[in-house]
Simulated scan of single mutants.
Amino acid sequence: MTKPNAALRSSLSCCFSENDDEGITTIGGGASSWRIFTYKELHAATNGFSGDNKLGEGGFGSVYWGKTSDGLQIAVKKLKAMNSKAEMEFAVEVEVLGRVRHKNLLGLRGYCAGTDQRLIVYDFMPNLSLLSHLHGQFAGEMQIDWKRRMKIAIGSAEGLLYLHHTVTPHIIHRDIKTSNVLLDKDFEPLVADFGFAKLILEGVSHLTTRVKGTLGYLATEYVMWGKVSESCDVYSFGILLLEIVTGRKPIEKLPGGVKRTITEWAEPLISNGRFKHLADPKLRGNFDESQLKQAISVTVLCVQSEPEKRPNMKEVVSLLNGHEQKVKVMPMRIKSIKYEEELLAFDQPSDADDHDGGGGHDENNGYGVFSALEGQKMQDPYKHRRDGRIDKNVY
């Protein structure tokens, strides 16, 4: 078994409980426990990290589909060459993931920390990401009808509620977007990718930090001054919700190279009360009009320019479920963010960010942990010939 080095073990000491008799290390407890994998196991599971198994690639490294010897489908994030800073960030990410215990958050299946290798293991999500259904390879198939869209919106909100109000210390995600909302076999949403996450202690209102995330989802105060708080995630969720309802991208390229934000497009329709015109045309009118209006109202509340006026995620979940009893004045105008040209620089990854994926959006790799790779390309490493016959017992 590959053991993590002393510094890594120390940083994760609160999570460990060893069972040397079985030759594995389990972390946590119950059904959500996870363990350390050996590099040999992950090499075998991914067909030697074959290009055919690659799900996505970014500045942090690559993600591969795999299948363990006991039939579990996994996604393996293989990080690039490590330095001391990257190693500490790896340890922090693993620890953050180890704290996550919620049905709408992608937790950790395990990790591998060899001499010169750092790999993080997740469960594989067969329906890939929300992005792949709204804008990617599944966009034309309409697998997410109105009912599923509302389920995805509410589930994603509940995952954020857990991060902001339940887990201690609270966690700010900092990169809420459609590519980081993964979908399981039942289209249950799981918020993923905690590479940019920040822990925030009780009583701390905000942190000032280097801007990370994806342009189009970022709150004004974060883009301009690097002030990050839970309300930044609320803003990002508002954009995500508007994207779910409308089927439009956060930033659209218009003829002539002009870029328009989704809020700029939606603003006149909302202010004139033309809610039906906001619904994704691919729905062909099959949506609940009262739910549509409620979702738009929640969006407008979430994307207000003043962070103190935004609801918290408890209120967002309650509003989306129709349970919010507190009377709220629903503003029917969005003060659109119009990104100046110089701010577009935030949409480009820098060399300093190579180890963690950068701070920008890569349109060629926008599918997050699980990309739009065709499933049939991936070779099952355990479906091989034994004694001249295909092994049919691997399933």
Rank of each mutant, 00 (worst) to 15 (best):
S33G: 03
S350P: 00
D362K: 04
I239E: 09
Y111F: 15
G140I: 06
L254G: 00
V92L: 10
K276S: 14
E202R: 10
A345P: 00
I27Y: 08
F237P: 02
L160A: 03
G66Q: 08
K54S: 03
G195F: 11
L106D: 08
V94W: 04
G155T: 02
E264H: 11
L301T: 01
G107T: 10
L241E: 11
R35V: 02
D387T: 02
D20S: 13
M378A: 09
S17Q: 06
S132N: 03
A139I: 01
S290P: 03
A219F: 04
P381I: 04
T178H: 05
G273H: 11
D380F: 13
R260F: 07
Q379E: 13
V100M: 15
N286D: 12
F194V: 02
M88Y: 09
M313A: 08
V191I: 13
V76I: 13
F194N: 04
E202M: 07
L12C: 04
M330C: 11
L254V: 03
G213S: 06
A157C: 05
T261H: 00
E324K: 07
E158G: 13
A219G: 03
E341F: 04
A44F: 00
D20R: 10
H277K: 10
G203H: 08
K227F: 06
S229C: 03
R389L: 13
H43D: 08
E374W: 08
K147E: 14
W146L: 03
G226W: 12
G155V: 12
M142L: 11
E18N: 01
K103F: 01
Q143D: 12
V327P: 02
G203I: 09
C232W: 07
G114A: 15
L344A: 00
A352S: 15
G358F: 13
N365A: 15
N180M: 02
M150P: 01
T26W: 14
G226F: 14
E342P: 00
A81C: 00
G366P: 00
K293I: 15
F90Y: 10
H170N: 08
Q325T: 15
Q304L: 14
A45L: 06
G28Q: 04
E202C: 03
D353E: 15
V92F: 09
K40C: 09
D233E: 15
V223M: 15
S156L: 03
G357T: 11
G238C: 09
L254M: 05
N47H: 06
F60N: 01
S156K: 05
T178I: 06
K77W: 11
I152W: 04
A279E: 05
V300M: 09
K253G: 12
L373K: 08
S231E: 11
V94I: 15
G107E: 07
K282L: 06
L292A: 01
L320C: 08
M150S: 01
Y367G: 07
S129L: 06
T25N: 05
S229W: 02
K227V: 14
L160I: 06
G48F: 02
H170T: 10
I154L: 12
K383D: 07
A192S: 15
G23C: 02
P169G: 14
G213R: 05
L269V: 05
H170K: 11
S17Y: 12
L12R: 04
S132I: 00
D21T: 12
L292Y: 10
K54L: 13
K326A: 13
K326V: 15
A6D: 13
K151D: 07
F16Y: 08
D353Q: 11
P126I: 04
E141M: 03
Y367E: 12
I24C: 09
F37H: 02
